[in-house]
Computed example of a mutant assay.
Amino acid sequence: MNGLQYEARIRSYLLGRYAAKTAASQLIGEQDLRQLQVKNGIFQQPLLVSRDGHRHPVSISHSGDVSAAVAFPAELQMGIDVEALDEVNVAAVETQMTEREKVTVRKLPISYEKGLMMLWTAKESLSKAVKTGLTTPFSIYEINQIELRPTYMVSTHTYFTQYVTLSVLGHRYAVSLTIPKLARLPEAFRQECQAFLAKL
Protein backbone atom coordinates (compact mmCIF):
# COMPACT_ATOMS: atom_id res chain seq x y z
CA MET A 1 0.00 0.00 0.00
CA ASN A 2 2.78 2.46 0.92
CA GLY A 3 4.51 1.62 -2.35
CA LEU A 4 1.39 2.53 -4.30
CA GLN A 5 1.04 5.82 -2.41
CA TYR A 6 4.71 6.61 -3.07
CA GLU A 7 4.28 5.87 -6.78
CA ALA A 8 1.20 8.11 -6.88
CA ARG A 9 3.16 10.98 -5.30
CA ILE A 10 6.00 10.55 -7.77
CA ARG A 11 3.55 10.50 -10.69
CA SER A 12 1.80 13.63 -9.39
CA TYR A 13 5.17 15.37 -8.93
CA LEU A 14 6.25 14.52 -12.48
CA LEU A 15 2.90 15.65 -13.89
CA GLY A 16 3.45 19.00 -12.19
CA ARG A 17 6.88 19.35 -13.81
CA TYR A 18 5.43 18.45 -17.20
CA ALA A 19 2.66 21.03 -16.75
CA ALA A 20 5.28 23.67 -15.87
CA LYS A 21 7.32 22.89 -18.98
CA THR A 22 4.22 22.99 -21.16
CA ALA A 23 3.13 26.35 -19.72
CA ALA A 24 6.60 27.84 -20.10
CA SER A 25 6.98 26.54 -23.65
CA GLN A 26 3.92 28.56 -24.65
CA LEU A 27 5.28 31.66 -22.93
CA ILE A 28 8.78 31.60 -24.42
CA GLY A 29 8.13 29.71 -27.66
CA GLU A 30 10.31 26.67 -26.90
CA GLN A 31 8.82 23.63 -28.62
CA ASP A 32 11.28 21.03 -27.32
CA LEU A 33 10.35 20.35 -23.69
CA ARG A 34 13.63 18.48 -23.21
CA GLN A 35 15.38 21.86 -23.41
CA LEU A 36 13.52 23.07 -20.31
CA GLN A 37 14.45 22.23 -16.72
CA VAL A 38 12.49 22.88 -13.54
CA LYS A 39 14.70 23.94 -10.63
CA ASN A 40 14.13 25.54 -7.24
CA GLY A 41 14.76 29.13 -6.25
CA ILE A 42 16.07 30.30 -2.89
CA PHE A 43 12.61 29.96 -1.32
CA GLN A 44 12.16 26.56 -2.97
CA GLN A 45 9.78 28.15 -5.48
CA PRO A 46 9.90 26.51 -8.92
CA LEU A 47 11.92 28.20 -11.67
CA LEU A 48 12.06 27.04 -15.24
CA VAL A 49 15.47 27.23 -16.91
CA SER A 50 15.54 27.40 -20.71
CA ARG A 51 18.34 26.22 -23.00
CA ASP A 52 19.93 29.70 -23.02
CA GLY A 53 20.19 29.68 -19.21
CA HIS A 54 17.42 32.20 -18.62
CA ARG A 55 15.21 31.60 -15.61
CA HIS A 56 11.46 31.97 -15.93
CA PRO A 57 9.11 31.98 -12.92
CA VAL A 58 6.38 29.37 -12.84
CA SER A 59 3.83 28.25 -10.28
CA ILE A 60 3.00 24.56 -9.98
CA SER A 61 0.31 22.62 -8.16
CA HIS A 62 -0.73 18.98 -8.17
CA SER A 63 -3.38 17.00 -6.35
CA GLY A 64 -4.21 13.40 -7.05
CA ASP A 65 -4.24 12.83 -10.79
CA VAL A 66 -4.46 16.53 -11.71
CA SER A 67 -1.60 18.98 -12.17
CA ALA A 68 -1.68 22.64 -13.10
CA ALA A 69 0.99 25.24 -13.79
CA VAL A 70 1.21 28.82 -14.95
CA ALA A 71 4.29 30.53 -16.41
CA PHE A 72 4.58 34.30 -16.40
CA PRO A 73 7.04 37.19 -16.93
CA ALA A 74 9.14 38.07 -13.89
CA GLU A 75 7.35 41.39 -13.46
CA LEU A 76 3.95 39.67 -13.21
CA GLN A 77 3.86 37.49 -10.07
CA MET A 78 1.20 34.78 -10.06
CA GLY A 79 0.33 31.65 -8.11
CA ILE A 80 -1.85 28.62 -8.79
CA ASP A 81 -3.28 25.90 -6.57
CA VAL A 82 -5.46 22.86 -7.22
CA GLU A 83 -6.97 20.65 -4.52
CA ALA A 84 -9.24 17.63 -4.54
CA LEU A 85 -12.67 18.24 -3.01
CA ASP A 86 -12.02 15.57 -0.41
CA GLU A 87 -14.21 16.08 2.64
CA VAL A 88 -11.74 14.10 4.75
CA ASN A 89 -9.61 17.26 4.82
CA VAL A 90 -12.41 19.63 5.78
CA ALA A 91 -11.76 19.62 9.53
CA ALA A 92 -8.09 20.47 9.05
CA VAL A 93 -8.89 23.13 6.44
CA GLU A 94 -11.47 24.75 8.70
CA THR A 95 -8.85 25.33 11.40
CA GLN A 96 -6.94 27.52 8.91
CA MET A 97 -9.90 29.84 8.25
CA THR A 98 -10.67 33.03 10.15
CA GLU A 99 -14.12 33.59 11.62
CA ARG A 100 -14.72 36.21 8.93
CA GLU A 101 -13.98 33.66 6.21
CA LYS A 102 -16.27 31.05 7.75
CA VAL A 103 -19.12 33.57 7.72
CA THR A 104 -18.34 34.44 4.09
CA VAL A 105 -18.30 30.76 3.05
CA ARG A 106 -21.70 30.11 4.65
CA LYS A 107 -23.21 32.84 2.43
CA LEU A 108 -22.04 31.21 -0.80
CA PRO A 109 -24.48 29.20 -2.95
CA ILE A 110 -22.33 26.07 -2.56
CA SER A 111 -21.79 23.57 0.23
CA TYR A 112 -19.81 24.72 3.23
CA GLU A 113 -17.23 21.98 2.59
CA LYS A 114 -16.66 22.99 -1.03
CA GLY A 115 -16.49 26.63 -0.02
CA LEU A 116 -13.76 25.88 2.50
CA MET A 117 -11.72 24.01 -0.10
CA MET A 118 -12.16 26.87 -2.56
CA LEU A 119 -10.88 29.33 0.05
CA TRP A 120 -7.96 27.03 0.84
CA THR A 121 -6.86 27.05 -2.81
CA ALA A 122 -7.32 30.82 -2.99
CA LYS A 123 -5.12 31.38 0.06
CA GLU A 124 -2.49 28.88 -1.04
CA SER A 125 -2.29 30.37 -4.55
CA LEU A 126 -1.72 33.79 -2.95
CA SER A 127 1.04 32.34 -0.76
CA LYS A 128 2.76 31.11 -3.91
CA ALA A 129 2.39 34.45 -5.67
CA VAL A 130 4.08 36.31 -2.80
CA LYS A 131 6.74 33.55 -2.44
CA THR A 132 6.04 32.73 1.20
CA GLY A 133 4.32 29.39 0.68
CA LEU A 134 3.04 27.78 3.86
CA THR A 135 5.79 29.28 6.05
CA THR A 136 3.54 31.96 7.58
CA PRO A 137 0.22 31.75 9.44
CA PHE A 138 -2.63 31.25 6.97
CA SER A 139 -4.59 34.07 8.60
CA ILE A 140 -2.32 36.59 6.87
CA TYR A 141 -3.84 35.52 3.52
CA GLU A 142 -7.38 36.24 4.76
CA ILE A 143 -10.06 36.71 2.13
CA ASN A 144 -12.32 39.65 2.87
CA GLN A 145 -14.73 39.53 -0.07
CA ILE A 146 -15.91 37.11 -2.76
CA GLU A 147 -17.65 38.26 -5.93
CA LEU A 148 -19.57 35.67 -7.92
CA ARG A 149 -19.20 35.68 -11.70
CA PRO A 150 -21.06 33.38 -14.15
CA THR A 151 -18.29 30.75 -14.32
CA TYR A 152 -15.85 31.66 -11.52
CA MET A 153 -15.39 33.59 -8.28
CA VAL A 154 -13.16 36.59 -7.60
CA SER A 155 -11.68 37.01 -4.13
CA THR A 156 -9.91 39.99 -2.62
CA HIS A 157 -7.55 39.81 0.33
CA THR A 158 -7.47 41.77 3.58
CA TYR A 159 -3.71 42.35 3.69
CA PHE A 160 -2.50 41.70 0.15
CA THR A 161 -4.77 44.22 -1.49
CA GLN A 162 -2.65 44.37 -4.65
CA TYR A 163 -3.81 40.85 -5.65
CA VAL A 164 -7.06 39.20 -6.68
CA THR A 165 -7.74 35.48 -6.86
CA LEU A 166 -9.89 33.76 -9.48
CA SER A 167 -11.39 30.44 -8.34
CA VAL A 168 -13.40 27.71 -10.02
CA LEU A 169 -15.06 24.64 -8.55
CA GLY A 170 -15.15 21.56 -10.74
CA HIS A 171 -16.89 18.30 -9.94
CA ARG A 172 -13.87 16.88 -8.11
CA TYR A 173 -11.39 19.75 -7.74
CA ALA A 174 -11.10 23.39 -6.73
CA VAL A 175 -8.60 25.56 -8.61
CA SER A 176 -7.45 29.10 -7.85
CA LEU A 177 -5.19 31.50 -9.72
CA THR A 178 -3.84 34.62 -7.98
CA ILE A 179 -2.81 37.57 -10.15
CA PRO A 180 -1.93 41.23 -9.56
CA LYS A 181 -5.09 43.32 -9.36
CA LEU A 182 -3.86 45.59 -12.16
CA ALA A 183 -3.17 42.68 -14.53
CA ARG A 184 -5.43 42.19 -17.53
CA LEU A 185 -5.54 38.60 -18.70
CA PRO A 186 -6.02 38.02 -22.44
CA GLU A 187 -9.41 36.56 -23.34
CA ALA A 188 -7.71 33.54 -24.93
CA PHE A 189 -6.08 32.79 -21.57
CA ARG A 190 -9.41 32.99 -19.77
CA GLN A 191 -10.98 30.63 -22.29
CA GLU A 192 -8.13 28.15 -21.93
CA CYS A 193 -8.46 28.19 -18.15
CA GLN A 194 -12.20 27.62 -18.33
CA ALA A 195 -11.75 24.73 -20.78
CA PHE A 196 -9.25 23.13 -18.38
CA LEU A 197 -11.45 23.66 -15.35
CA ALA A 198 -14.52 22.26 -17.10
CA LYS A 199 -12.79 18.87 -17.18
CA LEU A 200 -12.26 18.71 -13.43
Rank of each mutant, 00 (worst) to 15 (best):
A74K: 09
F72D: 11
I110D: 09
M78G: 10
M118T: 02
P73D: 01
A71R: 02
A74N: 05
L108G: 06
M117K: 02
Q96V: 02
Q77E: 14
V105D: 11
L119A: 06
S63A: 06
E75D: 12
S67G: 15
I80N: 05
N89R: 11
A84V: 05
V93F: 12
S67C: 14
E113I: 04
A69H: 14
V88I: 05
E87R: 03
V82H: 10
T98L: 08
D65R: 14
E113S: 08
R100W: 02
V82E: 09
A122N: 10
V105N: 10
Q77R: 14
E94I: 07
V66L: 15
I110W: 08
L108K: 12
K123W: 03
S111D: 12
Q96R: 07
V70I: 14
R100V: 08
T104R: 14
A122S: 11
V105G: 08
V103E: 14
D86H: 09
T104Q: 15
N89A: 12
M118F: 10
Y112N: 10
P73R: 00
A91W: 04
S63F: 01
K123L: 03
G79F: 05
Y112L: 13
L76F: 08
A122Q: 14
E101K: 00
V93N: 04
R106P: 09
M97S: 02
D81W: 00
L116K: 06
W120C: 06
